[in-house]
Design a protein around this nucleic acid. Structure first.
Lengths: 123, 123
DNA sequence: CACGTATATACCATTTAGAGTATATAAAAG
DNA sequence: CTTTTATATACTCTAAATGGTATATACGTG
């Protein structure tokens, strides 16, 4: 698992990263907030640290983890090649999502067009 | 494999997506350019289509695949929560990247309210 | 020192994604 | 109709990631 893409493919790791956006956290704090077993947290943090997503500092027995910017820049850089493309469609997309919001829920199984995730890319 | 993150975790799929940035391509064209076995291409395209990354149109026996914007917007949306963080940290690096793929923009050196730029045209 | 707390890691078992191969479907060409 | 071209899919196998459990390490405190 070398690529940044594989790193963020794991939901628990994304949750940890999102937690760390606000501020640095200890392993125990992450464990409690995300309700994961401690070894799980430690193992994911290990992966994240090896990939350069986070760094840790020592505070007595605690380890405080914080984000590092590098891999995010790399992700953004990859996404950049597509950005002009999708941002050109972004208006149409938003309209489309608005429509999906109303129609959502029932997609008849008879027709299998490309399925669209119904989560909101808007913020 | 439902999340867009898992979809782009696969290198061959990222290669296919990058290929499709320029224009739509048939399965055979992708196969030749990327030197993948045809079933591999078809299977990855299936995954990409199910996830909404691409769509296909029929041209005789060929299927022409092209990008769809939705999932890219979703990725960008996730990345957005980190963007202010890392762009603040890698300000110098960002300027470097901007210099590399500069097309226009970059009005004043004074930093305003960390306004979020959703697109940085690059190529 | 012995003990509790905080974190890391080793080991095992399960699951799943991906590759490879063969085959199915479908359209066009002869 | 038979063959060729283009693409999709079914099947099997293997590798690797993840979770769970137990244990190791390290620091702090009484």
């Amino acid at each position: 698992m070398e690529s940044v893409f594989e790193i963020i493919a794991e939901p628990n790791r994304r949750a940890i990263l999102s937690l760390l956006v606000s501020s640095h956290q200890s392993v125990g704090e992450i464990e409690r907030q995300l309700r994961m077993p401690q070894p799980t947290v430690s193992k994911h943090l290990r992966v994240l640290r090896d990939a350069g997503f986070v760094e840790s500092t020592v505070d007595a027995q605690r380890r405080l983890y914080r984000l590092k910017p590098g891999p995010f820049a790399e992700l953004d850089s990859w996404l950049a090649q597509f950005r002009r493309f999708w941002s050109a469609h972004v208006d149409a997309l938003e309209r489309h999502l608005d429509r999906m919001d109303r129609l959502e829920k029932d997609q008849s199984p008879t027709k299998k067009k490309t399925k669209q995730k119904t989560s909101r890319p808007k913020q």
